[in-house]
């Protein structure tokens, strides 16, 4: 009897686990599938699960030379913002983790609170500042804003990772005559490299998917993939095949990144509060 209940519970859990997973993933699966359909099949009624796959939608997306332009903008802005943020955040996190003062806790919480400033509250001044400094619709302008919005979270994450590096190791280095610079670059950075890598990864994901500033601060020159996809909203959105192919291209790199790094992301995102 007990064995029987156990087995039926096991079956129920398996069915439920897979059912919910497939249901939540279905829109993404359908998007990938529709990208390989021709426009006629993409809107066939009822929707087809089996069809002759074609690359015509992808070919059309690539034909618009613009796709690469948007993709390049996304890569340049995301990488630029991430590198700049790390350059500012690594020294700050090092200082807070290894040279803490009475104000460290307050500084960290204050940094986090700047992240709570709703972007829409400062949309008008940022827009006007960007316009007046000719940074509107430039990759530099968008990268600066992305860098600033993510900086608090990046400092927090690095702080969490640095604190796990035992201070005696750094002190040993100092005893051997290492300068602060050497201590940071030659002792700490190699030890904290996995943490820094997952911080960089999270920053890349956040920048890649950032939509608010991308849609409001760029129009054509610097528009990243988020804006490119938004341009499909209407009436072009009715070309389901092309829409799906373009969307798949826009999300694939970051989706794969996310799959690979999910474990490290959790540690980073929870500031080490959840182990």
């Amino acid at each position: 009897m007990a064995v029987k209940t156990k087995r039926s519970t096991q079956i129920a859990v398996t069915l439920l686990g897979w059912g919910i997973a497939l249901w939540l993933f279905f829109p993404i699966f359908w998007m990938i599938l529709t990208g390989f359909k021709g426009e006629v099949e993409a809107v066939s009624s009822p929707p087809k699960l089996l069809f002759m796959p074609t690359l015509s939608s992808y070919a059309e997306v690539f034909e618009r030379a613009s796709y690469w332009h948007f993709a390049l903008n996304t890569v340049v802005v995301s990488v630029g913002a991430t590198v700049a943020a790390l350059l500012l955040a690594i020294p700050a996190a090092y200082s807070m983790a290894f040279m803490p003062s009475k104000r460290t806790r307050g500084t960290l919480l204050w940094m986090l609170s700047t992240r709570m400033l709703p972007p829409v509250g400062v949309l008008v001044p940022i827009y006007l500042l960007a316009r007046n400094t000719h940074l509107l619709d430039t990759r530099t302008g968008l990268a600066i804003v992305d860098m600033l919005t993510n900086l608090p979270i990046i400092v927090w994450m690095l702080f969490t990772f640095f604190r796990e590096v035992p201070a005696p190791i750094l002190e040993a280095g100092r005893m051997d005559g290492a300068t602060r610079w050497q201590e940071m670059t030659m002792v700490l950075l190699p030890l904290a490299l996995p943490g820094i890598a997952s911080t960089a990864l999270l920053s890349l994901i956040l920048c890649w998917n950032e939509a608010f500033w991308s849609l409001n601060l760029t129009s054509s020159n610097a528009a990243p993939l988020t804006a490119f996809i938004a341009s499909f909203s209407s009436p072009e959105g009715l070309f389901f095949g092309k829409l799906s192919a373009a969307s798949t291209l826009a999300v694939a790199p970051i989706l794969i990144f996310g799959w690979i790094s999910q474990k490290q992301l959790v540690r980073g995102l929870t500031f080490g509060a959840v182990k």
């Binding site: 998917n209 499909f232 799906s244």
Partner: peptide, 23 residues
């Protein structure tokens, strides 16, 4: 199954909005 469940988090907002609106 876990990987499938967490996937929507990595989809950019404009894509997920269009995906739901149209497809």
């Amino acid at each position: 199954a876990r990987v499938l469940v967490i996937s929507p988090f990595f989809i950019m907002p404009t894509v997920s909005a269009l995906l739901w609106k149209n497809l």
